[in-house]
């Protein structure tokens, strides 16, 4: 990305104004999350009735005073909920949290990969090939998003039962992969439309097969869209709990959000653990985004002069 004349000479006040605007936006953005942090680090399992989003240090101090034997009393008080959430075990004593984290990672990653492979091929066909029913295909993908999902659960359950995929992570993976497909296909198709066809023709002339063209020319150029869709499908699978809780019948095969939702009972909520769990659950997402963001903004302009 080469710097244009105007950005190079942007006046200082504008730079400052932009940073100010971004900082304010970040603060607004983070404010509700601070509440979750506050929940997570407060020693009590309760939401506090005040407008102050910062952790209640007095409560932490009080807790620390009550447990003088710990090496880092304050820290261990603040992190108590995190410890409780991450060290859950089954009645047989196996590390349940680890197992559920692994389930979540596997389910989300695999469904993202499967979803991406299916979406990428379908989107490419919809963007490039001439065949009957193309418009209809695109529209029906959209149409599938229009019916509220809650009413489809019952029949979905019956179908998975028929396919013998109930109570399996495979079934869950397939459901997640297909439910995020419509978006992924639309997104990728839209992006493929912007990639000049001549690049593919150049590859054809260079002797590339249709598959080679696709893999070595089109896909690298669609990296931003791939990053977006990957993030989307991953999150779609990562935070879902109704289906997971309904389809899976074993604690050891639950995903993390199911475990997390368990902290919200019929009458009472274990706020501390709920908050801590929510924060833990969001860490891998942030990490994934961090890893993907250079592709997100790399794409066609990759390798430009770094500004």
């Amino acid at each position: 990305m080469s710097a244009t004349a105007s950005t190079r000479t942007r006046p200082l006040w504008r730079t400052l104004a932009i940073h100010l605007a971004l900082i304010v936006t970040c603060l607004v953005t983070l404010y509700p999350v601070l509440w979750v942090v506050k929940l997570a680090v407060s020693p009590a399992e309760q939401m506090s009735a005040s407008a102050n989003p910062l952790p209640d240090l007095q409560a932490i101090d009080a807790c620390a005073a009550a447990s003088p034997h710990s090496a880092w009393p304050r820290l261990s008080c603040a992190l108590r909920h995190f410890a409780e959430v991450t060290t859950t075990t089954t009645s047989q004593g196996t590390w349940l949290f680890g197992r559920q984290l692994l389930n979540s990672l596997v389910v989300s990653t695999v469904s993202t990969l499967i979803g991406l492979v299916l979406a990428v091929t379908a989107a490419y066909a919809l963007s490039r090939f001439r065949f009957p029913g193309k418009q209809l295909g695109m529209q029906s993908l959209l149409v599938t998003q229009m019916f509220p999902g809650t009413l489809m659960l019952v029949s979905l359950y019956a179908i998975l039962e028929r396919l013998r995929l109930l109570d399996t992570l495979t079934g869950l993976v397939l459901v997640y992969a297909t439910t995020s497909l419509p978006f992924c296909v639309w997104m990728l198709k839209g992006y493929f439309d912007t990639i000049p066809r001549e690049l593919e023709e150049a590859a054809t002339m260079d002797g590339a097969s249709s598959l080679q063209t696709f893999v070595r020319v089109v896909l690298p150029l669609a990296r931003p869209a791939l990053a977006v869709t990957a993030l989307f499908s991953f999150l779609n699978a990562w935070n879902e709990y109704i289906l997971a809780a309904t389809l899976l019948n074993d604690e050891a095969s639950f995903t993390l959000p199911v475990a997390l939702k368990r902290y919200m009972g019929e009458y009472t909520v274990e706020w501390g653990k709920f908050g801590a769990g929510a924060l833990i659950v969001s860490v891998p997402v942030m990490a994934l985004f961090f890893a993907l963001q250079k592709h997100l903004v790399g794409g066609l302009t990759a390798g430009g002069v770094k500004g």
Binding site: A122, F131, L181
Partner: peptide, 29 residues
């Protein structure tokens, strides 16, 4: 429609998944 066969190959897996796991429940709904 010169690409129909190729398109079919590219679309079939996604279409099958969506048909079974999305369209059928939707139709029932």
């Amino acid at each position: 429609y010169p690409d129909t066969v190729r398109a079919l190959a590219y679309l079939a897996p996604a279409a099958a998944g969506i048909l079974v796991l999305v369209v059928v429940p939707l139709a029932i709904g």
